[in-house]
């Protein structure tokens, strides 16, 4: 099972220091022995999430330049950008060689400190998947060749607790989503949805905020071992002090 940290790009910290600390963090995770890198070698080792911080594309590029072999995924949401801006990001990601993207609808601004912000939601994650994988509206014609349509490994963040979640997963599989990231909200996900995803030969990860991990990451992994996941993505808020570094 892979253990992958996900972190938002820094707000006030210098990005060069941030990158250095990320590398130390990855070294620390490796030392714990929790991350089985042989299980899913194509999986990203770290996920950089774009929120209210330094431009994530810049960070992906800089980290790739400094750590050539580091497999980075770029996570973004449908809340903050319209289709033009998203396509611009995808074109940039392709040019800098970042193949792994993770898309979510994104938490509504009303539930954040930016509660007066206008959310975008121009396209939803099925919409962006159909643009990428089905060539919807030919937005990427001439930019991504047909034989390169699978350039991106698209991970879709979903909930997996109800029948309607299962339906959304099925639709995402039908239009070509590559991976599924199940948002853990404190309740166990529906194992049948996970089984269905696995039966379709798609990878499935559990996404958990570190605040949900009461004890150690090891305990959390053990508690969810029966789900037969490909990995657990742990959202950390501080690359220096987090669930991996605390004693």
């Amino acid at each position: 099972m892979r253990i992958i940290p996900q972190i938002e790009t820094p707000v006030s910290e210098n990005y060069i220091n941030f990158e250095e600390n990320l590398i130390k963090l990855l070294g620390g995770i490796e030392k714990t022995g929790l991350d089985n890198q042989n299980a899913g070698q194509d999986s990203p080792r770290i996920i950089l999430e774009q929120n209210f911080g330094v431009n994530g594309l810049l960070l992906c590029k800089d980290l790739k330049d400094k750590q050539g072999n580091l497999n980075i995924a770029y996570a973004f949401n449908m809340r903050d950008k319209n289709r033009i801006s998203i396509l611009s990001d995808l074109i940039t990601l392709k040019q800098i060689g970042v193949k792994d993207i993770i898309v979510s609808e994104g938490i509504h601004p009303l539930k954040t400190v930016f509660n007066a912000a206008k959310p975008v939601y121009d396209v939803d994650i099925l919409g962006i998947t159909s643009i990428l994988k089905r060539g919807f509206m030919n937005y990427l014609e001439g930019i991504v060749d047909k034989d390169e349509a699978d350039f991106f490994n698209l991970g879709a963040v979903v909930s997996a607790s109800t029948a309607v979640d299962g339906l959304k997963v099925k639709k995402l599989i039908n239009i070509g989503a590559d991976r599924f990231i199940i948002n853990y909200t404190g309740k166990n996900p529906d194992e049948n949805i996970i089984k269905y995803i696995k039966s379709e030969k798609k990878e499935v990860f559990l996404y958990v905020k570190e605040s949900y991990i009461d004890n150690s990451p090891e305990d959390f992994i053990k508690a969810n071992w029966r789900l037969n996941l490909d990995g657990i993505i742990i959202k950390i808020t501080d690359e220096k002090a987090n669930v991996f570094t605390r004693q």
């Binding site: 509504h108 009303l110 539930k111 959310p119 909930s159 109800t162 959304k168 948002n183 909200t185 309740k187």
Partner: peptide, 20 residues
């Protein structure tokens, strides 16, 4: 839907109720 989604639900619901 506060997000105005066409293809929901979003990942934020709690199994029954809306995230917002």
């Amino acid at each position: 839907c506060p997000k105005g989604l066409l293809n929901g639900p979003c990942e934020g619901h709690n199994g029954v109720n809306c995230e917002v």
